[in-house]
């Protein structure tokens, strides 16, 4: 992007900010983590429809595997309350890999959060962290619900 175009965008964004706030907040569909998977582990129509767009997902932040990273795991239920009441087979649909826009400030695992980001489907191996995920939120921003 050239300089002028960039500043024009930035300035335009500032001026348009009041409108975007209301517009964007209304535009992102919000679901619970469980609503991404069917019982047979296939993706729900919601997940398929919204792949590639920004969605808001409710959940909990799992204790982070990496410090000072923009990666974390979103869980359906607070991690320490019932980590393994579900069988191993159900495990993957209880967690979601999240790649945040910025380094994550950790939110305690038992506080409900809302994560907004672009939904990405399909198996992906993180080249840096080595983790494998089937579904992810990228460019995410999280806040306490």
């Amino acid at each position: 992007m050239n300089r002028r175009g960039f500043f024009a965008t930035a300035t335009g964004a500032v001026l348009a900010a009041p409108f975007i706030v209301t517009g964007a907040a209304a535009a992102e569909p919000q679901v619970r983590l469980r609503e991404l998977y069917e019982r047979d582990m296939s993706f729900t129509p919601f997940a398929l429809e919204n792949a590639g767009t920004r969605v808001a997902i409710e959940g909990f932040m799992a204790p982070p595997l990496k410090a000072d990273s923009n990666f974390y795991v979103l869980t359906n239920i607070p991690m320490a309350v019932c980590p393994f009441c579900s069988s191993e087979a159900e495990w993957p649909n209880d967690i979601l890999a999240v790649y945040a826009q910025r380094v994550v400030n950790v939110i305690p695992f038992n506080v409900k959060i809302i994560t907004r980001g672009t939904l990405e489907l399909g198996t992906y191996t993180d080249p840096e962290l080595g983790f494998v995920s089937r579904v992810r939120l990228i460019d995410a921003v999280q806040e306490r619900a």
């Binding site: 982070p64 990496k66 410090a67 000072d68 980590p83 393994f84 209880d94 967690i95 950790v106």
Partner: peptide
Amino acid sequence: EQLYVNYALRAQFTTDRTMAFFPGTVLA
């Protein structure tokens, strides 16, 4: 490599004889 395995192991080895933790969490 499997993300959930880390969490599963952490739970599995949090027992009266063992302690399992993510240094990342402690640091965070």
